[in-house]
Computed example of a mutant assay.
Amino acid sequence: MKITETILPGVLILELRRFGDDRGWFMESWNRDTLRGHGIDIDFVQDNHSYSAHKGTVRGLHYQAPPHAQDKLVRVGRGSARDVAVDVRRGSETYGHWISVDLSAENGRQLLIPRGFLHGFATLTPDVELLYKCSDVYAPDCDGAVAWNDPDIGIDWGIDPAAATLSDKDRAAPRFADWTSPFTA
């Protein structure tokens, strides 16, 4: 496994080894002992699987506030998506900064996003399946969002913003400047 640090502390790109032959390939997508050996010790308690039919679907920027804040390990099982993390830990040197990583079924990359970061993705192909592990269960009273296209954050989603497919929740999300983060560094 290759682990690459990003400019955001704790946000990591994991590149897993695939073992292939004429039948296809096999990879271990999560191994607690292997990751503990790399200093990553997270107890994941919920797996999520989303499907987006259309290219240009945006889901995010989402978070779950304490006491149910979530670490996430994200990968794509079909298609391709641009996955985004934004540091929203008040007092952090990288507060408001973001990174994006293109995840696909072909490249097998995963993105580890710790609690204290907004998360979202845009589909770069049709028929995208995104799979992710979470360190806490979904709690509706802790669920929140920030505007995906906020100019103060300035994310390059890799799609035409005017053609984005959004949920009502994401359309109504507040601007970054009008939102108070529940996270501290």
Rank of each mutant, 00 (worst) to 15 (best):
I99M: 04
H68Y: 13
V88F: 06
E129W: 03
D83L: 06
P151S: 10
H68R: 11
G60N: 07
R115Q: 15
P151H: 10
D41P: 04
G24P: 13
T6C: 01
G79D: 14
I155S: 07
V101P: 04
F183G: 08
A81T: 12
S181R: 04
N31G: 00
K72Q: 04
A105G: 12
A172F: 00
P126N: 12
L61K: 00
I42D: 02
Y51A: 08
I159K: 05
F26R: 09
R171H: 08
D141P: 00
N48W: 11
V101E: 08
D71N: 15
G91L: 08
T123M: 01
G91E: 11
L131T: 13
G158K: 01
Y63R: 08
E106R: 15
V137I: 14
T57L: 06
A53T: 01
A65N: 11
I159T: 10
V76M: 04
A164Y: 09
G20R: 07
L16G: 06
I40E: 01
L131H: 15
S104Y: 04
L131S: 14
Y95I: 09
A65L: 10
W179S: 05
W30I: 07
W157F: 03
D33K: 15
T180G: 08
G37A: 15
D136M: 05
A122T: 09
D71A: 07
Y51K: 12
L130F: 11
Q110L: 02
H119E: 04
N149K: 08
H49F: 11
D41F: 03
G60R: 02
V101T: 12
L166F: 04
G10T: 11
L12W: 02
V76P: 13
R36W: 04
Y63V: 01
P182G: 11
A172T: 09
D136A: 15
L103P: 06
W148V: 04
H97L: 09
A185G: 05
D152C: 00
G20Q: 07
R82S: 09
L8T: 06
S80M: 14
D47F: 01
E93S: 13
V11R: 03
H119P: 01
L16D: 00
A163T: 05
T57S: 14
P9Y: 05
I3R: 07
A173G: 01
G60K: 02
A145L: 06
N31I: 00
K55F: 00
F176W: 15
G116D: 11
H38N: 14
R78C: 02
T4H: 10
L166I: 02
A164H: 02
E106N: 09
L61C: 04
D33Q: 15
G10A: 13
D33L: 14
W25I: 03
T4Q: 12
A85I: 09
H119D: 00
Y138M: 09
S135I: 10
T184S: 15
A145Q: 08
T34P: 00
Q70N: 02
E28P: 05
R32F: 09
E15S: 12
H38Q: 14
A177R: 13
D143F: 12
A105V: 03
I3F: 08
R175G: 03
N149S: 13
E106S: 14
D22Q: 13
Q110M: 10
